[in-house]
């Protein structure tokens, strides 16, 4: 397998699988990650001098987090590693949010 996650001999199947993985990561997973980031960040960020930074900064950063989450799986040579990294972040954010809601 090459660094791009594709093989040179029977690369069709691997390439298609990598493309599908990238599309899923850059689409619904990126959206979920950005929304959960916005939900989890108020619970861990400091409120700052004005007492609102933990509420406001996640909303301001939401478009940037989403854009980064779209671009990362497209640019990385290893979609498997991107899936693992994004999955770990999602799990962490989910744990933070659930701890607040339950």
């Amino acid at each position: 397998m090459t660094r791009d996650g594709a093989t040179s001999t029977d690369g069709g199947w691997f390439e298609r699988r990598a493309a599908v993985a990238r599309a899923l990561l850059a689409g619904p997973v990126a959206l979920l990650l950005a929304v959960l980031s916005m939900a989890a960040a108020p619970l861990v960020l400091p409120p700052g001098r004005g007492g609102v930074d933990h509420l406001v900064l996640p909303v301001v950063a939401f478009p940037l987090i989403w854009a980064a989450a779209v671009l990362y799986p497209v640019m990385t040579a290893r979609p498997g590693r991107a899936a693992a990294a994004m999955g770990a972040i999602l799990a962490l954010e989910l744990a933070i949010v659930m701890s607040a809601l339950l």
Partner: peptide
């Protein structure tokens, strides 16, 4: 936004 000037209020 907020009670005093901060990074969040400046960005908003």
């Amino acid at each position: 936004v907020g009670a005093a000037p901060s990074l969040g209020s400046a960005l908003v």
